[in-house]
Design a protein around this nucleic acid. Structure first.
Lengths: 162, 162
DNA sequence: TATTGTTATACTCTATAACTATA
DNA sequence: TATAGTTATAGAGTATAACAATA
């Protein structure tokens, strides 16, 4: 088997698996006409409405100029809306519209279903353990900072790691 | 925290973590002048020398026309060599040269070191469990087939899943 | 002077399709 | 007819840099 040596490297296993997950997520969300990133955007707005595009860009791991296009399309489809930011007149407050909220619920169900199938080879307690450890690796890598690397240049306040 | 909802979706956690891992792998291998994919290629040749480019492309998850460039550069640097394939005159047998073998050993050490840091937030037995479960998810996703999706069109013999 | 959103430009990467030489 | 390798082309995606408005 040619996956023998690949298996020696968890980083490679993770990389290949993630490529597959991303492809599958695109397919899973295609019936709703949204990309995984746009699902992520709706997801963030469900959590807290009215954030600025810059605030949304970090957790999605995209640059702010990419965020423009993401919001553009969701706004064009009547799923979100740009409003005046209450405290910063440079920024736009992105708000979720009813259509966006309902489409997010559908997407949420589709993604959860996919994840169930993805982890379907594990026993429930094993899946639980896997997800818990995955999150801990995520946090240990410093990925809960929520700031796009391309925006670090001009001295954002980041805790150094390593 | 804006990572709250992201945490509801293992697929998203995995996707973001993998993006980080890929970036880090690029940096880790940069001192040796190779990309993660080229490390993967050397890795495969270490396992079994003389495979055709097509046979190598699958496990690396790249199309055969991308493989051309990968082999080109490694050959230019004297790390690998194209020889005549013993049984198929259309194919090239890619062989590892001594310089390639020694560079692979260095790369192997660097990658292993990175993986130790990556999983450094887990106890040894937890890391072991995580890697085991990761591999099982990988296998359950059917990723040990080793065939590039772009090559599936013309009816390659693949076991269907789902 | 720095930051938010925006736009334009260039660059990288990849997918598609052809072509040749074999099978 | 199908496949291995190669090449060229076009497209998608992304990074960089600039700009206006505001902090």
């Amino acid at each position: 088997m040619s996956t023998q040596l690949l298996f020696d490297h968890p980083a490679c296993v993770m990389t290949h698996l993630s490529a597959h997950v991303q492809e599958q997520l695109v397919d899973v969300l295609a019936p709703l006409g949204i990309h995984p990133r746009q699902f992520g955007l709706l997801n963030l707005l469900t959590e807290e409405d009215g954030r600025s595009q810059h605030q949304l860009a970090g957790p999605l791991n995209v640059h702010r100029n990419v965020m423009v296009g993401l919001v553009d399309e969701l706004e064009r489809r009547g799923l979100v809306e740009r409003r005046r930011h209450p405290t910063d007149r440079r920024a736009h407050a992105v708000h979720l519209l009813p259509a966006g909220r309902s489409l997010h619920a559908e997407a949420e169900a589709l993604v959860s279903g996919f994840e169930d199938r993805l982890l379907g080879g594990l026993e429930p307690d094993e899946a639980q353990t896997f997800v818990t450890l995955l999150k801990r690796v995520f946090v240990h890598a410093g990925l809960d900072h929520d700031l796009h690397p391309g925006l670090l240049a001009s001295g954002a306040a980041l805790t150094e790691h390593r």
